[in-house]
Structures are given as structure tokens and as C-alpha cells.
Design a protein around this nucleic acid. Structure first.
Length: 134
DNA sequence: CGTATTTGACCACT
DNA sequence: AGTGGTCAAATACG
């Protein structure tokens, strides 16, 4: 969750170093590194709402985790242009109760079309879109 | 060929 | 000890 001291992006340093160390750099000798291939074909009907909704930006899913504390999994998205535009837009989508169908989307930070920078926004996708276009 | 997407594992904090 | 969050690599599709 949000670390008390994770306000500074500099924290990425340690993370990057750590990953590098684990060294997937040596694919030839993975100490048990087995990447299971995925079947890019989820059964139709299971999908209630498309997290990749068109909010004006391209979102790329970079992770998924199931929270035991909650009843549904959480999806992590980040702006596809993160590399080129430095638009450090990050989106966290938590699937709310099936009754509401629409999960809650928390935006960590994203560049506003107006040129402003928004951070730590939380609300439904609908609200976020409205805010973006505000 | 490039991009988007998926899954597993590790890490840091509490 | 457990949780949550991110990265890296591999694959599939256009």
C-alpha cells in the first residue's frame, strides 16, 4: 500500500537495483524461473467492465493481485506513453462488489489535458473522466 | 516487427 | 509474517 515514505519517486532506485540483482539477466540459468505462458483468451461473459475504458489515454496493464482482505482482485495500469512523454500516469483499478459492477479507479498521478498535474485522485471511472475533461 | 498483454516472483513496509 | 506493489520476461496479435 502507499508507504509512508513513498512520496518521493526516488524510491524507485532501490526497486530497480533489486530487480536487476535478481537477475533475470541470465535467462540461461534461471534458478527455477519458470514463466507460465498465458492464454490471451478469457472466457466471454466473465468480463463485467473493461478497465481499459477510453478515458482519453492509453492504459497498459502491468500487474494484477488478489487481495485476500477484499473479495476481488486488483488491477494495476500505467500510461503507455510513460517512456516517451514522461506522463507518469498510473492507475489502480480495484474491482468493487459485483453488485456495483464498476470498480473503483484510483489514479496515483497523471498529466491533465489542461497541462496541470493531478495526483492521488480516487473515484469511479465516470468521475475520473469528468475530472480529466473538466 | 512492434506492441500489448499475461504470469510469477521479489521486495519493502507494517 | 503477511500484504501490497512493481518489475521482468515470454507470448500472441495486428
Amino acid at each position: 500500500m502507499v508507504r509512508s515514505s513513498m512520496h518521493e519517486p526516488a524510491g524507485d532506485d532501490k526497486k530497480q537495483a533489486g530487480s536487476s540483482m535478481h537477475g533475470p539477466a541470465a535467462p540461461s540459468s534461471p534458478s527455477g524461473f519458470k514463466r507460465r505462458v498465458r492464454c490471451r483468451g478469457e472466457p466471454p461473459g466473465t468480463r463485467v467492465v473493461s478497465p481499459t475504458m477510453d478515458d482519453g489515454f492509453a492504459w497498459r496493464k502491468y500487474g494484477e493481485k488478489t487481495i485476500n482482505h477484499h473479495s476481488y482482485p486488483r488491477f494495476y495500469f500505467c500510461c503507455t506513453y510513460r517512456d516517451e512523454h514522461g506522463c507518469g500516469a498510473k492507475k489502480r483499478v480495484q474491482q468493487a462488489h459485483g453488485k456495483h459492477a464498476l470498480g473503483t479507479t484510483h489514479v496515483l498521478s497523471f498529466a491533465s489535458p489542461a497541462g496541470g498535474l493531478v495526483e492521488s485522485v480516487e473515484g469511479s471511472l465516470e468521475e475520473l473522466v469528468t475530472l480529466l475533461w473538466s
